[in-house]
Simulated assay, not measured.
Amino acid sequence: MKAAIRPDGVGCRIASAADFSNWIAERSAAELTEPFTFVVGTDGVLRLAPRRCEHVACAGGDMVLSAGEIGFVREADRWTVSEISNQSTGYCPDIGSWPEIARALDDVGLERPSGFTHEVVFRRCPDCHEHNIVREDDFVCVFCGSDLPKTWNMDPIT
């Protein structure tokens, strides 16, 4: 997987308030109207990239603790997180990954909501092994009609 990642596709490492200030200052007004791609690496550090960047590319092909989309708004002379989701079909993170992104945002000093503002529930079908997004608590595979597990099961098949 890493061999397919271009070096310029890797997200920007945001380990401090200064890192975030420098990164956000380089964003255009048009970019700021959309959410950005984020990942939290296994080192616990936030990485940010333009929205159209794949999460796997943002992470440099590495495993992550959390991933999704994040939006920022300027309020009272500081940046805050306005929206955040675990929407990443590359990693399919569980909604239980919230503490990892919360910790990374706290480390950078960004105000944030108390949880994902939009939660996406991912499940792998035990029968056909396809990835599914569960909508309206309908835990049925859209590909084969099998029941999906109630607990997150997106780890790689062994």
Rank of each mutant, 00 (worst) to 15 (best):
N22W: 08
W23A: 09
W23D: 04
W23F: 14
I24W: 00
I24A: 01
R27M: 14
S28M: 02
S28P: 02
S28A: 00
A29H: 03
A29C: 01
E31R: 05
E31L: 08
E31V: 05
L32Y: 01
T33R: 15
T33H: 11
F36W: 07
F38Q: 02
V39L: 10
V39Y: 00
G41T: 12
D43P: 06
V45M: 05
L46S: 03
L46P: 02
L46W: 06
R47H: 15
L48W: 09
L48Q: 08
A49I: 02
P50I: 10
R51N: 12
A57G: 04
A57Q: 12
C58H: 02
C58G: 02
C58I: 10
G60T: 04
G61A: 04
G61D: 08
M63W: 10
V64G: 07
S66W: 07
A67P: 03
G68F: 07
G68D: 05
G68E: 05
I70C: 01
F72G: 03
F72W: 06
V73N: 07
E75A: 13
E75W: 10
D77Y: 07
D77L: 10
R78S: 14
R78E: 15
T80L: 13
T80V: 15
V81I: 14
S82C: 05
E83N: 12
E83Q: 13
I84S: 01
I84C: 02
N86F: 12
Q87G: 04
S88K: 06
S88N: 11
T89F: 13
G90K: 00
C92D: 02
C92W: 13
C92K: 09
D94H: 07
D94F: 05
I95M: 01
G96V: 09
G96W: 01
S97I: 00
W98R: 03
W98D: 06
P99Q: 07
P99L: 09
E100L: 04
I101H: 02
A102D: 15
R103H: 12
A104W: 00
L105W: 07
D107V: 08
D107E: 15
V108R: 04
L110C: 05
E111G: 11
E111W: 11
R112E: 06
P113A: 04
P113T: 08
S114H: 08
S114N: 09
F116I: 07
F116D: 00
E119F: 03
V120L: 15
V120S: 06
V121T: 14
V121S: 08
V121P: 02
F122K: 04
F122Y: 15
R123P: 08
C125N: 01
P126C: 00
P126H: 03
D127V: 14
D127S: 12
C128T: 08
H129F: 14
H129A: 11
H129Y: 12
H129N: 11
E130R: 13
E130T: 12
H131L: 14
H131Y: 14
N132L: 06
R135L: 14
R135M: 10
D137Y: 09
D138Y: 10
D138Q: 13
F139S: 05
V140Y: 02
C141W: 06
V142W: 15
S146Q: 10
S146W: 09
D147N: 13
L148H: 00
L148A: 05
K150M: 14
K150N: 09
